[in-house]
């Protein structure tokens, strides 16, 4: 990834983070909540090549770690999304070109979001965070997966367009 793309991706992620924290979080979704930021970040990771997935995962995690409402230690999301980026990078070939099949892509993103939240819970337990009851955590995981499946097809065309614009001629 070129420095220009790293910078533009970071700026895009920060705008998305602002939208998530100031607008999306105001909406009381039935069945837990929806993290647009996490869904879009996972989608971006899925679009990238091997190294790009790692870098985008790390950057998305660092921005998410800046969340003032978070109780988690700074760097936890960076660690988790880097691992998710690595898992996407190494396993993407098993699904052929899933970016061309919207249905598989949506389920791939929903799985990524659920996996990231599960890892967040697991890592949180290791460092002594209180995660509440298992039932509630399951509802949050299922709710996030459900909303990701519903909303991903809506933002996907726009995300593809934004990504195309941000690519340099060499990267295209």
């Amino acid at each position: 990834m070129s420095p220009t793309r790293i910078f533009s991706t970071l700026a895009f992620l920060f705008i998305l983070f602002t939208i998530q924290e100031s607008a999306i979080s105001l909406i009381h979704f039935p069945i837990a909540g929806f993290s647009l930021y996490l869904a879009v970040a996972i989608s971006l990771i899925a679009f990238e090549d091997h190294n790009g997935s790692l870098v985008v995962g790390f950057l998305a995690g660092i921005v998410l770690d800046l969340s003032p409402t978070s109780n988690a230690p700074f760097g936890q999301w960076a660690l988790i999304l880097t691992i998710v980026g690595y898992l996407f990078a190494t396993n993407r070939e098993s699904f052929a070109d899933f970016t061309m099949s919207p249905v598989i892509f949506v389920f791939f993103v929903a799985t990524g979001v659920t996996l990231a939240l599960l890892m967040y819970l697991g890592f949180g337990s290791l460092v002594g965070e209180a995660n509440g009851s298992i039932n509630r955590d399951l509802v949050i995981l299922l709710g996030n997966a459900l909303w990701t499946i519903i909303f991903t097809p809506m933002y996907l065309p726009a995300l593809r367009t934004v990504r195309k614009i941000s690519l340099t001629s060499k990267e295209r």
């Binding site: 790390f58 230690p73 700074f74 660690l79 880097t82 690595y86």
Partner: peptide
């Protein structure tokens, strides 16, 4: 790629440890 992965993971763990 492996070097990049190690660098990013170590950086993230470094931040977690600092926090």
């Amino acid at each position: 790629s492996r070097l990049l992965l190690v660098i990013l993971l170590v950086t993230a763990l470094f931040f977690v440890t600092l926090d």
